[in-house]
């Protein structure tokens, strides 16, 4: 028997609804998110350093 609370409707609104379901996407670890973030930051910093010379704007 499911506990009653588990089937309760939401008691308040949220702009976004979060579910803890495993989706069908390609699984990545939280650490690889940090690696991706670092790569984005390095990319933009490199643009500031070398962009003007390479791209000319």
């Amino acid at each position: 028997m499911p506990r009653p609370e588990e089937r309760m409707p939401p008691t308040g609104a949220g702009l976004i609804r979060y579910f803890q379901e495993e989706g069908s996407g390609v699984k990545i670890s939280p650490k690889s998110v940090i690696v991706f973030t670092a790569a984005v930051i390095v990319f933009v910093i490199l643009l500031h350093v070398a962009g003007a010379g390479l791209l000319g704007f």
Binding site: E22, G23, G25, S29
Partner: peptide, 13 residues
């Protein structure tokens, strides 16, 4: 849309 969703990376539970 499932074919696209299946290729999107997702943080493992």
């Amino acid at each position: 849309l499932d074919p696209i969703i299946r290729r999107l990376p997702e943080v493992a539970v």
